[in-house]
């Protein structure tokens, strides 16, 4: 499963998102090629400002 797959399943469509796997930043161009393994710590932080 890649980062991109996870985002599709969770329906994370918003562009201003910070993705970290095991505390390492994953850039947008690498979402499709970064594989996530069992036990990995995955953080997907949306930066939404709001009103």
């Amino acid at each position: 499963m890649t980062v991109e797959d996870i985002m599709k399943i969770k329906k994370f469509s918003y562009s201003r998102i910070i993705v970290k796997v095991n505390d390492k930043h994953i850039e947008q161009e690498d979402y499709a090629v970064t594989v996530v393994n069992d036990g990995d710590d995955v953080k997907m932080i949306h930066l939404l400002a709001g009103g």
Binding site: I45, H46, L47, L48, A49, G50, G51
Partner: peptide
């Protein structure tokens, strides 16, 4: 009024 706090994403989506 949401001028004080806007935490929806931080809470619900990011679970921070």
């Amino acid at each position: 009024q949401h001028d004080e706090a806007w935490l929806i994403f931080m809470d619900m989506v990011n679970n921070q």
